[in-house]
Amino acid sequence: MCATCGCGSGETRIVPLNIGTDMDFKPMSCGHAAHAPGLARSRIVQIEQDILSKNDALAARNRAAFAAAGHFVLNIVSSPGSGKTTLLERTIRDLSATFPIAVIEGDQETSNDAERIKAAGAQSIQINTGRGCHLDADMVAKAYDELRPSPASLLFIENVGNLVCPSSFDLGEQARIVLFSITEGEDKPLKYPDIFASADIVLVSKLDLQPYLQCDLELIEENIRRVNRKARIMHVSARSGEGLEQWYGWLGNSARQRVA
């Protein structure tokens, strides 16, 4: 019987002792191509490789490049429509006199967001992912090379609006910010636990709508804590300005610490 596929059962075969040196690889009666008699051609290879190893290696390279250039880099993730671009516009208007700010914008299509950021007064570049549902470290590396942020910039990477896929892809950022608008429902962290578990900061946003929504803010915090014990939680409104001082304080301190 052929050891490769088990064909030709019952056939008597003579296995030469000098396997691999002088064998006759005749096509077999089973119709398969020649098999090495008595010798399995397939082999098992143990590789134990992380599927994201290539992205992780590129992310490590980005992180080193950001540090060498003195750029403090934040990856901002959220659902579509939770107010990432609005928060960035406000942050740029309020802080660009203190820090140079640059933004890498990720969306499936259009450069609307990069235009808004530019109008707010920051350097910006748009990545269109096409069918892609997230940014990866390679896209960010290319956009970063093209953008060339000014020295000591605060660089925001606004990820594609999606609470699922971006959680697995390290971009080389120094901190990950998850924006969570109170219109999304108190149980969002439980519905999308992976992204909330990966956050360094959770910004609970659109606080100006609280009079109309009467969200249970304590329950929101409790749900975030159920999937992430360590993340810092801040409450903000880009429209009314509520809570932004704390956000700016954290940005300023972190940028000075990391860049110094």
Binding site: R41, I44, V45, Q46, S168, R225, R226, V227
Partner: peptide, 29 residues
């Protein structure tokens, strides 16, 4: 991720496994 500890009911948990995505083994020609 958000489940409490099945033994004591606490939410003070640190995930230590189950986050990997790895290619373990191949059969090749």
């Amino acid at each position: 991720r958000f489940d409490p500890c099945p033994r004591c009911g606490s939410h003070q948990l640190q995930v230590t496994g189950g986050e990997d995505l790895r290619i373990r083994e191949l059969e090749v020609d």
